[in-house]
Simulated assay, not measured.
Amino acid sequence: MKEHINKINGPSNPGFYDAYKRLGEPEVEILFEKDFTNLLEREVTLSSMERYFINIYDATNPECGYNKRNTSPFTPGAKKIIDEKINEITQNLLDERLKDYEVIKEKLLNKKELLNPAELFFIKEKFREKNAFQNAIDHFDFYNYENNSDYDLEFLIDDALRFIKHIIETDTEKEVEDYINNNADLVFGNINDNTILKINQLGEIVKEYQSLNEVCEELNIVRPDNIRYVLRGRQKMAYNHYWMYKKDYEEKKKHLEKDLFN
């Protein structure tokens, strides 16, 4: 709302901003509420819902709404995490899915070993509907390499086969992106859960807090600098307690137990 109705950013979407100036602030009705402890899951869910409503109300149509596109951008921090996760999962899948491609490429380069039926299906049929170089594949003699010119073989490897690799990479990335958008809670778990643990000198969890502001209110302090230093590992304790993010607890628990033992 701040993005669309303020005088600096508002005019970038003239339809919405003109309506705001003419009619005043829009009335808002809360249809339902949902709580999220995982901020990244919240971001993905909101973005997915926004795309859903943009499409269902045809909001990119100037006669129906003010949206310029049917997508919803993520905030920079969330986008960085999402892109990293997409790249990680995509690369893991491609390591497996491109094995056939690498084997076929090696066999063709050697020009000695013929492809087996499964490999022939992979190169000739599996990607037929999407492959722009299918004609070159259909006219290549896979049963006697001597019947093909060096140019035919070079074109097959450098263009037709490489295009198959491109299809696999593109389809896999799209598959992973769609999966993450629809299953954020399963994929990310507590990756962005900033729940803070207060731990006493016996190593026992005393309380959980959802924010540093909540800690400040309970301890009646203005700034949580010392607690923030503990969370960042710059000092060991603050206000006679250890402090750490819940998402880091299992990893740091051993170091805490060693420190307490000493």
Rank of each mutant, 00 (worst) to 15 (best):
K2Q: 05
H4W: 11
H4P: 00
N6L: 02
N13V: 10
K21S: 08
R22S: 14
L23G: 04
P26G: 02
E27R: 10
V28C: 01
K34D: 07
D35Q: 12
T37A: 00
T37S: 06
N38Q: 13
L39S: 09
R42P: 01
E43T: 11
V44H: 09
V44N: 11
T45W: 12
S47F: 08
M49W: 13
Y52L: 14
F53G: 05
I54M: 09
N55K: 15
D58R: 13
P62N: 07
G65E: 04
G65K: 05
Y66W: 12
N67C: 14
R69T: 15
N70T: 11
P73W: 07
P73L: 03
P73H: 03
F74P: 00
P76T: 07
A78M: 11
A78T: 11
K80F: 12
K80A: 12
I81R: 10
E84R: 14
K85N: 10
E88K: 12
T90H: 03
N92H: 11
L94H: 02
K99V: 14
E102N: 13
K107W: 05
K107S: 02
L109S: 12
L109F: 03
N116Y: 07
N116M: 08
F121V: 12
F121P: 00
F122P: 02
K124W: 03
E125H: 06
F127E: 02
E129K: 13
N131H: 02
A132K: 15
I137P: 03
I137D: 01
D138M: 04
D141A: 06
Y143R: 01
Y145L: 01
S149K: 06
D152E: 13
L153V: 10
I157P: 03
D158I: 01
F163K: 02
I164P: 02
K165N: 05
D171C: 01
E175R: 12
D178C: 08
Y179V: 02
N182D: 15
N190C: 09
I191E: 11
I191P: 00
D193A: 05
N194H: 15
T195Y: 07
T195M: 08
I196L: 12
K198S: 10
N200F: 03
Q201H: 12
Q201A: 09
Q201K: 13
G203A: 03
K207E: 15
E208S: 14
Y209S: 07
Q210K: 15
L212W: 09
V215Y: 02
C216V: 04
C216K: 10
E218A: 02
L219Q: 10
L219C: 00
I221L: 06
R223L: 11
D225C: 07
I227K: 03
V230A: 07
G233V: 04
R234P: 00
R234C: 01
Q235M: 14
A238V: 06
Y239P: 12
Y242S: 04
E257A: 08
E257Q: 10
K258P: 01
D259L: 13
